[in-house]
Structure formats: structure tokens, C-alpha cells
Nucleic acid binder design. Sequence first.
DNA 1: TGAATAGTGTCTATAAGACAATATCCC
DNA 2: GGGATATTGTCTTATAGACACTATTCA
Lengths: 257, 257
Amino acid sequence: MDKPSSDPDKTLDVGTAADLERYPHPFVTTDVALLTVEGRALKALLLKRTDPPFEGKWALPGGFMNIDEAPAAAAARILESKVGLRGVFVEQLATFADPDRDPRGRVLTIAYLALVAPEQLNEIALDRSDRVLAELEVPWSGETGGPVDALRSSEQTVTGRERLPLGFDHAEIIGTAVKRIRGKLDYTPIGFQLLPERFTLRRLQDVHETLLGQELNKDSFRRRMLASGELEHTGEHERDVDHRPAELYRFVRRSAL
Amino acid sequence: MDKPSSDPDKTLDVGTAADLERYPHPFVTTDVALLTVEGRALKALLLKRTDPPFEGKWALPGGFMNIDEAPAAAAARILESKVGLRGVFVEQLATFADPDRDPRGRVLTIAYLALVAPEQLNEIALDRSDRVLAELEVPWSGETGGPVDALRSSEQTVTGRERLPLGFDHAEIIGTAVKRIRGKLDYTPIGFQLLPERFTLRRLQDVHETLLGQELNKDSFRRRMLASGELEHTGEHERDVDHRPAELYRFVRRSAL
DNA sequence: TGAATAGTGTCTATAAGACAATATCCC
DNA sequence: GGGATATTGTCTTATAGACACTATTCA
């Protein structure tokens, strides 16, 4: 018998590495949905594909996972080699493994969610033609879920903006990332991953509102944040604003849940 | 060049199926954390392994994903062939891919969370020596996370119960499942997946309390559930209880979030 | 001084917790 | 009737939303 039986009840009867090799098995990549919030826009970093498949389309930074590499390490490696970022927040999002998602064959991807403050992103080159910080258009509210659209950010927001075609199932992956971050926002101080070390309450609220896609009550947002024990006064204030400067806060680790 | 370069920047330069085959790639399995709540105990279905690796230890129902099969379909297939269950709630949990998690080689698993009412589980044979509905002991509170212990359920809960040794990283997978379901419980009517079609409010609260590992205020739980619009009166009441019988309710799909 | 936003204080509305009173079953 | 739990109603407390008022900066 050259090939193993496909009897479902037998699929675990594999005790040795030699047994394993008889099974055809998928290829595994890692894709990173790197999100940021800039002004009032939710954005994702996209790279232009220079090779098949989906040549010329836009895609998340990604690549094949090495055979001796943990997937989180692969995500960090890809983020550093393709984007030039390290030390940012990264967590596993979901695995996308539709049999037809890659025309080359069976390639599944372990998708990761990464968050970064726009200030940190400005340190990497964004003026290259093969790299774009795309604005996301989320066509659903709350945590409904579904694919999102990527638009080229532009100064003249009046006219219709260019829609960037996405390769693979990356529109769905980014949509899952948005859904995930919306869900975490309710019970986790995840917003500070999108901010510099010191920030104003107004900016924190902007981040929350942009991520959630809805306005929040200013008074209760302030009270809730200050009462959470997650924020720490710095005593410093913002500068060069044409109004009363707001105090800068810093996130602190909570002692207990 | 027989093997492809492992230069990270080159890992996406694979345009054809032939290119792909040059890369060593992991094997992919699916494991299903099938949870239920019985009485005041959170339980998971475990199977005794009859072959290496981890022969004799206990593990989640799982198996290799077929090359042309979506992972959710693999999870459903495994649930039916190994446990005899179909039509239960199943959702993707996370992918566990530590390079050393399987002594046979690089085998990653796409783990799924499945929920079922204990009544439905009673229809399958649980008196087999290679199958057990293990009680879970969660050594952390809230959504801290971490591995959990599996104990053999027994009538005499007074004495120390037998701890079931788990193979692979399945203690961690089950822990992730518990963490996930605790998180969902706050904003999703997930509890009804662990109940028969009709149930009393007391039983619903028991499910919530068992999953969360903490007691809940009865009054506000009732009010919250009834105000959520997720419950529907049936007009019927429970029978054969030695106290005033409670009304039976039914879950309804919410019209909007 | 005026525009703009920060920050404080207070009132009201809503939700959560506590608890008393009554209802309904089995024994 | 007694025991047990369901169900309803009311009171108290905590939190969220609304809004008025003061504070501080720059132009």
C-alpha cells in the first residue's frame, strides 16, 4: 500500500516520522495584519505583490513558516524583514485554510494581528511604490464580521479614493482582525498598543472611536478610563495646541483582573 | 540548487506548485475540544490513545486534515467518526504549532471548540474504557488562561479523584477553550449551546456559573437574560421537582446586535 | 478678548444588588 | 402544613449620560 488509507477512523494511526511522510500535507505561511490608527482612520500595511500568484495585487506582509520555527516567531521575522518593525504587539488571529485559497495548491496561513502606533510606522519608508498604509473601510457595524475594503489614503478625501485590490483571502483576514480588536476593546486595555508611551485622554478616545466605528460619550469614557486603574498621571501636558493643553497619561500594568 | 534559500526576504517568491514542493512543510491535524456542563462540573471528552505517540495517555478527538478538506470540515468529520456527534456548535479556537509539540516531527494542529448539551452526549457510549467525559479543574480565575487538569468524574467526590494524563499540548488547548468560552459568555448567548432546547433560568445560570467558575447574582442574572430579548417564554414548566416548577424558556435569534 | 478644548461638579436615567413577600409544587 | 424554589415587587446603590460651569492655552 503506497498511500495511507483515508478512512477517517485511521487518521491518527501514525506513530513514526516515516508513517507521516506518506500523507500529502499543506504548506503553511504566516500573514500579519498590521493595524494602526492615524487621525480618524483605521489603517493596515499592505505590500504590492511582485510575483505570482496575485502579482500586482496588494497583500499583507507574509511568508512561509520555516520547518523549525514557531508561527509567532515567523510572524515576528516577517514583520522585521519585510516591514522593518520589531517589538510591536503581535497575537495569533486565526488560521485560514480554505482548500482553494491559494491557486498554487494547498497553502494555509496562520494569520497574526499586530498593532503599532503611527509614530512608530513613520520611521519606516512609506514612500515606496510597493508599500502602502491603506485606509480600511469597514462595511459592517459592531462585531458582525466580514471582509473589509482597502483604500489608498490621500489628502483630498473629497473625491472617491482608489480601491486597492487585495490578493488571496486577505480582505477577509483583515476583517477578522478588525472584528477581533473591536471585541478586545471592551474588556482589555488594548488601545495603548496604538499610542505612543504618553498620550492624552482625547487621543485615547479617538483610537477607541475609530476602532469601534462609533462615537463614545466623552464624560463616561474619561471616568471609566481613570477609574480602571490602567492610567497613570505623568504631570506633563501636551504642547503647541491652540487650546488648553491636556494632561498626558501613561498605561500601567494592572495588578489583578 | 536543490533546496530553496531560507533568506526570509525570499520566502514569498514561490509562484508555482513545483516551486512549492521544494519547501519542507508541516503536517496538519485538527483537534476538537468538546466541552459540556453537567451539574456543577465543566467537562471535556477525551479518548485514550492506542498508538504512539503518547500511547496510553488521554487526548482530544483529533486526526489529520485531508489535503482537499477545509479544517472546519475535518473537525466535523472527526467529531462524527470518533465521537458519533453531528450538528453541534463548532468554531475555530486557535492553531498550536510549537515545533516540538509532536515527537514524530513537525505537526501543527488547528484546534476547534465544540459545545454540546449533556443530554446529547448521553446518546453516545461513554462506558467504554477508551473514552471518558473528564471533569476539568481550572487552576486560574477569570480569563487568565493556562493549562487545565482533567479528572475522572466519579460519584464519590470526597476522595481525591484520578488525574488523567494528557498527551501532546492538549492541556493547553483545553485551557484555551475554557478561556475562549469565558470571554464569549459576556457578550454572546453561547450558553444555550450547552442546554437542551427548553430549559429553566436556574439551569442557564448554573451553566454560566460553572463556565465562569464564580457565582452570579440571581436577580440581576434573571433580569439581564429576560431583558436581552434572547429568551422566549414557552408557557410550559418543568415537572417532577420537589418545589415550585420553573417556567421553561427557549433561545431565540436576536434580530440585531 | 475670543475661539477652542480640558477638566470639574452636579443632576438624572438606567442597571445591578439586596431583600421582602407571595406563588406553586412535592412530601 | 412544611420544605423548597420560583416569581414579583420595592428599595438601595453603582454606573452611564447629559449638561452647565470653570480653566488654560494660542491667536
